Simulated assay, not measured.
Amino acid sequence: MALATSRRPAPDPVAVLRAHRAAVNVLAFHTPSGALLSGDADGELKIWDLVKHRPVFSSRVHTPSAGVLGIGVSSALNNKIISQGRDGTVKCWQLTESSLSRQPILSVKSESYHFCKLAVARRCTTNDESHEDTRGAAGQILMAIAGNDTSKVEIWDITSGQRVQLLSPKDSSVGMCMSLHMIFQSGEGDQCTVVAGYEDGSMLMWDTRHPAAPLLQSKQHKEPVLSLVLDGPGLGGISGSADGQLTLFSFNSTEKVYTPKKKFEGQAGIGDIALRGDDKIFATSGWDHRVSIYDYRRRKPLAFLKYHKEIVNGVAFSEDKKWLASGSKDSTVALWSLYPPSEGTSKSVE
C-alpha cells in the first residue's frame, strides 16, 4: 500500500488488539515464534497470536508500580526475552510454546527509577540483510541500560549475567540518560557503538573499546531525547525529543563527526521510533495520539496514522516487514500493513 498524504487517506488498522487493562508502554516482535509481545503500565506482558489476533499468554512480570518499560529480543537470544521495569529491574525469561518460564532465568537490579528503555546490541547490516548474528566475537549478548547513577550507561553480558562496562559522560550536567541504542560494528570483533540521548537534549556516543570518555557529544535538541534508533549499517539514525523535534543524522566515528541531515519540528513529544529492517521507512509514536510514517532515505513524511485516542507510547516493525504495531495509553495495540514486500517496488520508498 503506497501511502502519500497528498494523494490518498491513510489506512485504518488491519486489526486492533484489546486485552490490556492499562497503558501499553512497549512492543516487540519475536521472530522465532512469530508472536507479538506487549508490555503495559501494570506490569503485564502479553504474547499475541497474529493470526487469531488474541493473546495466548499473559503474565505479570513486573510490579504494578514499575510496569513494563522495555522488552528485549534478538536472534542471539532465540527463545529468551528480556523485560524491564521502570524501577530498574531487568529480567530474562525462557519462552516455550507461547508461554514464559515461571521464574526469570536472570535478574538484574539497579536502584534507580528511570524512563530509559534497554537496548540489546545487534550487528551492523547492509542493504536487506537480516540481523542474524547479534553476538559479539566472544559469544557475548550485550545489553545497555541506564545505571544506578542515571547519567551513566551500564553494559551487561546477558549470557554470563555480569556487568562488563560502565560508560560515563564527561560531566553530569547532561542529566538522566533517556534513550539508548547499541550496535556491533562489522569486522571489529567486540567493538560496540553505544549512542545515548540525554535529559538536556544532548546525544553522546561511545566506542566500547575506549570507554573512558564519549567519542562524540552533540546537542541537537532543546528538550530530553526520548527516543533514538540507528540504521542498519550503523552510520546514521534518528532521534526524537519531548518537544516533538525529529532529527535525522549521520556520524563518522573515525573522524568523530556528527552531522544532522534533516530536522522536523513538531508540537508533541516523540516517545518511540522504529526503523524497518530494510532502512526504507520509519515510524514514530506521538503524544498527539498519532503514528507518523517517514521515508528514511528521502527524509520526508509519508503518512500520519490516526486511530489511538491517547498518547502512543511504542511502535515496532516485524522482521518480515509485513507489520507495524503501535501501542497506546488507551490500552490498545493496533496492527498496520504498510508497504508489505508482496507489493513489490513502491516509488515512494525505494
Rank of each mutant, 00 (worst) to 15 (best):
M1F: 10
M1D: 11
A4E: 15
P9K: 13
P13N: 00
R18H: 12
R18P: 02
H20Y: 06
R21C: 11
L27S: 00
F29W: 07
T31Y: 11
T31F: 04
T31H: 11
G39C: 06
D40T: 05
L45D: 06
I47Q: 01
K52T: 12
V56S: 11
G67W: 09
V68T: 04
L69K: 10
A76D: 11
N78V: 03
N79Q: 13
K80S: 14
W93V: 02
T96D: 13
E97N: 15
L100E: 01
S101Q: 04
Q103T: 14
P104N: 07
V108P: 00
K109C: 11
S110R: 15
S112T: 13
V120S: 00
C124E: 15
T125R: 14
T125N: 08
E129W: 00
I141H: 08
I145Y: 08
I145P: 05
A146F: 04
G147R: 06
N148W: 12
D149Y: 07
I158F: 03
Q162T: 14
V164F: 01
P169S: 06
K170D: 12
G175K: 00
M176Y: 14
M178N: 06
M182R: 05
I183S: 09
G189H: 00
Q191Y: 03
V194I: 14
A196D: 04
G197M: 02
G197P: 05
G197R: 01
M203Y: 09
R209D: 14
P214T: 09
L215N: 08
P224D: 07
P224F: 10
V225F: 02
L226Q: 06
G234H: 13
G237C: 05
I238C: 10
Q245N: 12
N252I: 03
T259N: 11
P260R: 06
K261I: 10
G271P: 00
R276C: 07
I281A: 02
I281D: 02
H289C: 15
S292E: 15
D295M: 01
D295P: 05
A303W: 12
L305S: 07
K309P: 01
V312S: 09
F317K: 02
D320N: 15
L324P: 04
S326Y: 11
G327D: 10
S328I: 12
V333N: 06
